[in-house]
């Protein structure tokens, strides 16, 4: 189908984009790669009056080394996230998970920032950001602010980014010395996660000294498996101990039931996939 009519603004800078959003009013929308937005517009599930294209803004296209963290521009494509030297070297969890998003053609246009702001509960990038306690740099008419991952993902398809704001970049801590793995369960190629698990662990002298685990599609927003993290830390890095700790992965979650899986099966998957993800992250 053909989308409903809209006006198109190609922004040259973040300030220009914010100004265009303000001028466009509440029916204006940011266009990143369009890989979630265009299917929505084609099916006429949404019909914004103005699209503000941020893909040409230089600042959004950068990946920057900040010392103990890297700053990934919101307009960096999923394909670039997979291959960028700073990401593969310091946040391999992000590059590995990016390689499991959609398919190559969609990854060539879809952006890291778009994935996060779209905030699909089955999206892979939000749970990686949540696991790593990422920070989101958001620009609006009143200037810039930084939002913690725990405050960024608000609900199904809803983030802290306001209607007149642009996500500029995402700050991720360097995970040097940690092992990590993203485990995704889906039934067909090129499909969204039925359940996914993002895990990073630090192993020292045979013991786990740090653990970060977040679940995809186990609720309206990414879920941190805090009880698993607590059970892992201080324990031995063994397959048995990890399997034991992963038993609580689904505690307190309320996943949906849909055509792909019911809630009970999702909870089963969360436990099994958490064990697999943490085991691989620990290099076992």
């Amino acid at each position: 189908m053909i989308p409903a009519e809209f006006d198109y603004v190609k922004a040259g800078s973040v300030d220009e984009a914010v100004a265009a959003l303000v001028a466009g009013g509440e029916d204006s929308k940011v266009l990143g790669g369009g890989q979630s937005l265009l299917p929505v517009l084609r099916l006429r599930l949404n019909s914004p009056s103005v699209l503000v294209d941020v893909s040409g803004i230089d600042e959004l296209r950068q990946v920057t080394d900040e010392g103990s963290s890297i700053l990934v521009g919101a307009g960096v494509t999923t394909h670039e996230v997979m291959h960028h030297a700073l990401v593969t070297a310091h946040v391999p969890l992000l590059s590995q998970a990016a390689g499991l998003v959609a398919d190559p053609a969609i990854r060539h246009l879809g952006t890291f920032g778009g994935s996060c702001t779209h905030a699909d509960p089955s999206g892979d990038m939000p749970s990686v950001a949540a696991a790593l306690d990422a920070e989101f740099v958001v620009a609006g008419p009143g200037g810039r602010r930084t939002v913690a991952a725990s405050d960024f993902f608000v609900d199904f398809f809803t983030t802290a980014v306001g209607l007149d704001e642009v996500l500029v970049a995402v700050r991720l801590p360097k995970m040097d010395g940690w092992g990590s793995h993203y485990e995704k369960f889906h039934r067909t190629a090129q499909a969204w996660a039925i359940v996914g698990v993002a895990a990073a662990v630090k192993v020292e002298g045979g013991a786990i000294t740090g653990a970060k685990v977040a679940l995809t599609n186990m609720g309206p927003t990414p879920v941190r498996a805090t009880s698993v993290e607590a059970a892992l830390v201080g324990g031995p890095a063994t397959v048995e101990a990890i399997a034991g700790a992963s038993g609580s992965a689904a505690d307190g979650t309320s996943p949906t039931t849909d055509t792909h899986a019911d809630a009970e099966f999702r909870q089963h998957l969360a436990r099994v996939l958490t064990a697999r993800a943490v085991t691989k992250a620990a290099g076992l």
């Binding site: 189908m1 198109y8 369009g34 299917p39 053609a105 060539h108 246009l109």
Partner: peptide
């Protein structure tokens, strides 16, 4: 109509994209 099938794939600056999921202005 869902960006799934890939029949419409073309290269933009040498990289594959689904031309049904890109605006001409992009």
């Amino acid at each position: 109509d869902t960006s799934n099938c890939g029949a419409c794939t073309v290269l933009v600056d040498g990289r594959s994209v689904k031309s049904c999921s890109v605006l001409a202005v992009q």
